[in-house]
Design a protein around this nucleic acid. Structure first.
Lengths: 229, 229
DNA sequence: CTTTAATGATAGCTTTACTATCACAATTGT
DNA sequence: ACAATTGTGATAGTAAAGCTATCATTAAAG
């Protein structure tokens, strides 16, 4: 069984891992199958012993790549944010109108744009599910300040910064570009989760695009952009 | 040492606890000091052994009140949401203008309204810190559907419903009252956390009221309310 | 063809999460 | 007044999680 490198590979900060999992067969197996297993069991029930069994390797071998399952979660999140930013940059490369750029950005963030998942190491659909149900655990922890100083949240910050820049381009005097960006990103995740598990907390019906419509509209109203809705 | 019952006591669903902690001295101690300890250690580092030591009781005694530390977190969150809804109802009792009601609601949700914390069993300022850094862990779990069926998220749903009702009163045709409500509630929490730990993800400067201003403005723009800002 | 690196196999240690049992004190019921 | 119930503490124990260490084997690199 091979695990080929895809063309795209995000830069992941070296303090997140002990040994770069992207550089070896076992490393890529860890990434790939941890997505499957976290998606299946949830982050709390997931551990390295189970992952080891799943990939016919051992706990000890996995610990050579990551300090803890928590760092692995940070890795997966970072990979995801890096991938999103890559798509965003790629998609918007030939677009000049910042409003259109922002629209595309929201669509990508809401997982609305079709993408061939197979071309990547990781199953990005499963990964998106992990992101909206587990990724906040990557920073809602006591040692967030230490990890932050170590640079482990770089990819998320980078993405937020990129989206904020588009907002700034649209309206240079708008005072809350970062708040707006994180409100939309985290909001999309919450609504996704609620629509699956706590339906009365959202207005999204299964299969609808309400989340996308809602957050596009929210952004446009904030920035006083007139749209033909 | 006494632990007196305050006048206010939210209804907490009985599937959250084994034995109602509000009805005994030890129970109230568990609640009060778990807030201190979770605030101090973070939810992951917190456990019943440490809490037992802290209150000069034992792990086994605490397990007679709660299944797990997770259920205790759900209890504390529910208590908080019940308390918020109580204040909201109380504060808006004599107000007829729904716009004014909604304004007050956001202020209460953003912890902006001064409150004498001492009059309650629980230190509501510490509790607010737990809410914005830990409370999402109460539902971001694999067995959310089972717990939800058991009714453990009642207080949160109730609050979201109450705020959504005000929105509906203001604009009966607005299609996303729940999304707007949860976006604002969860958004406030994220911005609070980011302003303390991941500053580049928000625009709030220490001591500023930007969070409140931002979300008030966001709501008003969504509902097409003209304000004298 | 020898050194180095990567993995597997195994073992073990500490802590967490939880359960069970028994003793004792304080209420409560009759 | 006495029995029964209830609440708590003390203690012990189990299974799993989280993590580290050691050694053998194989593969790759110098």
């Amino acid at each position: 069984m091979y695990f080929v490198l895809s063309k795209f590979e995000p830069k992941i900060h070296r303090t997140i891992y002990i040994k770069d999992p992207a550089t070896s067969d076992l490393g890529r197996k860890i990434l790939k199958y941890s997505v499957d297993l976290i998606d299946e069991l949830g982050f709390e029930e997931f551990n390295f012993r189970k992952l080891g069994k799943h990939i016919h390797s051992t706990e000890a071998s996995i610990y050579r790549y990551f300090d803890s399952k928590h760092k692995l979660l940070i890795y997966l999140s970072s990979w995801y944010w890096g991938w999103i930013e890559y798509r965003l940059t790629f998609r918007n490369a030939n677009i000049n109108d910042p409003v259109q750029k922002l629209t595309k950005a929201v669509e990508i963030l809401a997982d609305f744009v079709e993408v061939k998942s197979d071309s990547e190491i990781l199953d990005t659909h499963k990964l998106f599910r992990i992101i909206f149900s587990e990724s906040s655990k990557a920073y809602l922890i006591k040692d967030v300040d230490i990890l932050n100083k170590d640079g482990v949240y770089y990819n998320y910050k980078q993405l937020v910064s990129a989206v904020s820049d588009i907002i700034h381009e649209i309206n240079p005097t708008y005072p809350y570009p970062h708040m707006l960006t994180t409100t939309v990103i985290e909001g999309i995740h919450h609504q996704m989760f609620f629509s699956l598990h706590l339906k009365s907390l959202t207005d999204r019906k299964e299969g609808e695009h309400s989340i996308l419509v809602f957050y596009k509209n929210l952004i446009f109203k904030q920035l006083n952009i007139k749209t033909e809705l």
